[in-house]
């Protein structure tokens, strides 16, 4: 059996065929390619079946250098990952995680992995040892350097319900940013664009938080697929501010693709969300890094 072939025709079930998925030009801006504790490379290679099967054009891993658990500590596979980002540049890119608890070290890592390396952006992970969210002044030198490099800036956000009294965001980890933190940072850097990750965790609230801040884009991977969520985000923010991510392999491409395919977005807007918006955002650094792409 051809591992890329579908045994039945998806069109008979009202969903895209593989060639239709390919034609969407899907860029996965939220790829946990190497986020495994035991065998990150094995996980990466195993997941490639699904990357190809679902017609993903480019995967952008969030674990380029270090790990999400310890962004600033060199990981055992850093050299291999770096080599892969060069060798597979036709379809694989990387952004490197940083830690605002350590701004100098974060900037040094950006110099190594972006200015002198293959990466195209930075990621704020979901919490850090010093409890520093992205709104803290520590972040200003990081953002200034990112702007100089033209790096994309992805910020994990959530509004986990919890605490006493219970409320959205009160269940967050120390240093885990909220969409409110992203807006506070974005106000200080109105000429820089930020990606607010996971649609703020709770899309009904996250969209409201970022709505009035035009330099904040919204990415909505890594949460359950809620019917109507993308329609709501597009209505409130406009399709030009939405960015797609797959969050695999821990999330299913089925989950993330369905969010857009179920929406009432026009075909043109789907193309923007699936990849066009991110390509426009990242075009300067993609060119600077010599990464092949079509806008």
């Amino acid at each position: 059996m051809d591992p890329l072939a579908f045994a039945l025709n998806p069109a008979d079930y009202g969903i895209p065929t593989r060639d239709e998925l390919v034609a969407y030009r899907i860029w996965d801006t939220h790829f946990h390619g190497f986020n495994a504790t035991s065998d990150p490379l094995g996980q990466f290679h195993a997941n490639n079946l699904y990357v190809r099967r679902m017609g993903i054009e480019r995967s952008i891993t969030l674990e380029a250098g270090g790990t999400l658990r310890a962004p600033l500590e060199p990981a055992a596979l850093d050299a291999e990952v770096r080599a892969l980002l060069v060798k597979e540049r036709a379809w694989l890119s990387g952004i490197t995680p940083i830690d605002p608890g350590f701004p100098d070290e974060s900037c040094a890592k950006m110099e190594a992995w972006i200015r002198r390396g293959p990466c195209i952006g930075i990621k704020y992970v979901g919490g850090n040892s010093r409890g520093i969210p992205c709104s803290h002044p520590n972040n200003d030198p990081i953002i200034r350097l990112a702007a100089e490099l033209g790096a994309t800036i992805y910020i994990h956000t959530w509004l986990k319900v919890g605490g006493t009294p219970r409320g959205p965001g009160r269940g967050n980890l120390p240093g885990e940013s909220t969409p409110q933190d992203v807006v506070a940072l974005a106000r200080r850097f109105p000429d820089v664009r930020f990606i607010c990750g996971h649609s703020g965790g709770d899309w009904e609230l996250g969209v409201r938080v970022v709505r009035a801040q035009p330099n904040v884009l919204l990415e909505f991977a890594g949460s359950d697929p809620h019917s109507g969520a993308v329609d709501f985000a597009a209505r409130e923010l406009g399709a030009d501010r939405l960015v797609w991510g797959g969050h695999g392999p821990s999330r299913s491409y089925a989950t993330e693709l369905a969010k857009v395919l179920e929406s009432d977005l026009s075909h043109a807007d789907r193309l923007k969300v699936f990849g066009g918006n991110f390509r426009r955002l990242a075009a300067p650094i993609l060119r600077r890094q010599g990464i092949p792409f079509e806008l």
Binding site: A11, D19, R58, W91, H267, L295
Partner: peptide, 30 residues
Amino acid sequence: MNTASLPRRRFLCQTAAVGAAAALARAGAP
């Protein structure tokens, strides 16, 4: 356009069936 991007896209397109344009017209109608 950066023509160096073609290998990946060509790979994806070649492994997919033809007829994407007509199919997209169907799938793209919300």
